[in-house]
Write a protein that binds this DNA or RNA. Structure first.
Length: 110
DNA sequence: GTGTTGACCCCAA
DNA sequence: TTTGGGGCCAACA
């Protein structure tokens, strides 16, 4: 059993399911996959997800406060915010506005 | 093989 | 309100 690779795939699949104009959190994804407590792994997985062939919208994943913690890992520091605003999400000072409303909970929606 | 780091989260003071 | 400490586990040096 190769659970590590499987976990990454599950993360990618779940993130792909996030609707346009919505965002989710690392913790929610981790918990949804039964890895509650290991939220860092989701972030680590995202770092490896920069590959365009994976087609993973990592910009829709933020930390629990709605802060764009991963923006510095993009090619440009503003790319993540640009992508979010293009989808109708307001981002001010790396902070998602109306985060509670924009939040997409996989545990509830699925 | 060991030690440190990190796109995180939770709780206490 | 802001800080600090613990936990979690893969990736990296």
């Amino acid at each position: 059993m190769k659970n590590t690779a499987n976990f990454y795939e599950q993360v990618y699949e779940l993130v792909k399911l996030v609707p346009k104009g919505r965002v989710t959190t690392y913790g929610a994804v981790a918990k949804s996959l039964g890895m509650s407590g290991s939220s860092r792994m989701v972030g680590t997985a995202m770092k490896h997800a920069h590959d365009p062939s994976l087609n993973v919208p990592a910009h829709r994943v933020v930390n629990r406060t709605g802060l764009l913690t991963g923006k510095h890992h993009y090619q440009t520091p503003t790319e993540m915010q640009e992508l979010l605003e293009k989808e109708g999400i307001i981002v001010i000072d790396d902070q998602v506005q109306d985060f509670e409303r924009k939040f997409w909970n996989p545990l509830v929606e699925l």
